[in-house]
């Protein structure tokens, strides 16, 4: 009780924020896992999960229990320490970026001046986790998946950063709340090229189809997580869904006006409804393109990045800088 009383209001707020973030991470993984399978079904004129609960709504909970009950198999001759470390390395950092995302005017862990840099720095740890997992598995498919993931993520971080930089030049701040507040007009209308480039780079950064080369089922079994079973696999999956949530949140903050929308009562809190609506619309788009496009070949992937995205993002940045200066 002594320690509880000694907590300052600011610490209480942070504690609540962290609890909220844990809820968002697991809730998002459940919702997206269900939505993805349901949408995948309907994109193919099937029904998707139907058996557990009303229209299969409890399917993901049952799956979670199953995954928890499964044995963690470590392959013989795998690097056991790295093998066990990788899922945690992938899963643990995904909580941090959510701390600085402004869900609404008042619902934000804390507003960092360098919020964007913070998110991008933390998000890039995932590449390391994939590399460690692929290397530690002692499996050729895992290793190939990891190699591809590193090449792809390093390449696509460049256009992503440059596209976001154009917005930063317009708002003069790295703080996510500052960027939301600076948007009288949604930046998607002022920076359409940057938005498109970010959209492509965001799909590649989250390793999702059509850029899912690190886990290409038809070539690499399951890529870097071939050898993972039970919770090792599900930690990777939760991390992937949370990374989707994070990149969609950045897109919402930078291009879709964050919480802005039709005013509701108690808008400093209920603005989060608009925020989540926009994020999940983008998530729906991610699922949509996953079930539309075939996987790119590796050279096509690199061509798209180096020949199209990077030149266009640089030109876009140049024009933005000139216009802002004028």
């Amino acid at each position: 009780m002594e320690t509880l009383n000694s907590l300052t209001p600011e610490l209480w707020r942070l504690l609540l924020a962290i609890i909220g973030i844990v809820v968002v991470v697991f809730g998002n993984a459940l919702v997206m896992g269900y939505l993805e399978r349901k949408l995948a079904g309907h994109f193919q004129c099937r029904t998707g999960p139907m058996e557990v609960g009303f229209h299969g709504i409890l399917q993901l909970i049952v799956d979670g229990v199953k995954l928890m009950g499964k044995q963690l198999v470590v392959p013989a001759q795998a690097d056991k320490k790295l093998f066990m470390l990788a899922p945690m390395l992938s899963f643990a950092p995904v909580f941090l970026p959510l701390l600085v995302i402004p869900f609404s005017d008042k619902l934000q862990g804390f507003d960092l001046d360098v919020g964007l840099l913070f998110i991008l720095a933390i998000a890039s740890i995932n590449v390391l986790a994939i590399l460690v997992g692929g290397w530690g598995s002692n499996n050729k498919y895992s290793l190939f998946g990891a190699f591809r993931s590193v090449a792809q993520n390093v390449a696509y971080e460049i256009p992503m950063l440059i596209a976001l930089l154009a917005v930063v030049f317009m708002t003069n701040t790295f703080s996510l709340r500052g960027i939301v507040e600076a948007q009288n007009v949604w930046f998607v209308f002022l920076q359409p090229v940057a938005f498109l480039i970010y959209l492509v780079a965001m799909v590649a950064e989250t390793n999702r189809a059509p850029f899912d080369l690190p886990e290409a089922e038809s070539e690499l079994t399951a890529g870097f997580h071939t050898e993972y079973s039970g919770m090792g696999f599900s930690l990777f999956m939760i991390a992937e869904y949370t990374n989707m949530f994070i990149v969609c949140s950045i897109a919402t903050v930078f291009f879709l006006g964050g919480t802005s929308g039709i005013p509701l009562p108690y808008f400093e809190y209920t603005g989060a409804l608009w925020f989540f609506a926009k994020v999940y619309l983008l998530m729906f788009f991610l699922v949509w393109i996953r079930w539309t496009y075939p996987r790119t070949r590796f050279d096509q992937l690199m061509n798209l990045c180096w020949k199209y995205l990077i030149p266009f993002s640089l030109i876009n940045l140049l024009i933005t800088v000139v216009v802002v200066k004028l």
């Binding site: 994109f43 004129c45 099937r46 029904t47 949509w288």
Partner: peptide, 11 residues
């Protein structure tokens, strides 16, 4: 694919 999404389920 969007047309497929809104078309009725066949299974």
């Amino acid at each position: 694919t969007f047309k497929a999404l809104i078309s009725p389920v066949v299974t």
